[in-house]
Simulated scan of single mutants.
Amino acid sequence: MIKFFRKIRQNLVVENKFSKYLIYAIGEIILVVIGILIALQLNNYNDALNENDFERKALLNLKLDFEYNQSELNKSIAELKEIKKNSFIILDNTGSKYQASFDIDSLLQSVGNVPKYYPQNGFLLDLINSGNLGIIKNDILRNKLSSWLPTLETLKDREKSVVDFTDDFIRYIIKNGSWLNSDEKTNDEEITKIRFPKSGFEINNNDLLKNIEFENIVENLIVYKSLLLDRHEKCIELNKEIINFLETEIKK
Rank of each mutant, 00 (worst) to 15 (best):
K175E: 15
K175S: 14
S178Y: 09
W179K: 08
L180C: 05
L180M: 12
L180W: 08
N181Y: 04
S182T: 00
D183H: 15
E184T: 04
E184Q: 13
T186W: 00
T186G: 00
D188I: 06
D188S: 10
D188G: 00
E190V: 01
E190G: 00
E190L: 11
I191F: 00
T192S: 13
T192K: 15
P197E: 09
P197V: 08
K198E: 12
S199Y: 06
S199R: 01
F201A: 11
F201Q: 11
E202P: 00
I203L: 15
I203G: 00
N204C: 06
N205Y: 09
N205C: 02
N205R: 07
N206W: 05
D207T: 11
D207A: 09
L208R: 02
L208K: 01
L209N: 03
K210R: 14
N211P: 01
N211K: 10
N211E: 13
I212R: 10
I212A: 13
E213L: 10
E213V: 13
E213C: 00
E215S: 14
E215R: 14
E215A: 15
E215Y: 12
N216G: 10
N216R: 14
N216E: 12
I217V: 03
I217E: 04
I217T: 02
V218K: 08
E219T: 11
N220S: 12
L221G: 10
L221W: 05
L221D: 03
I222C: 04
Y224P: 00
Y224D: 09
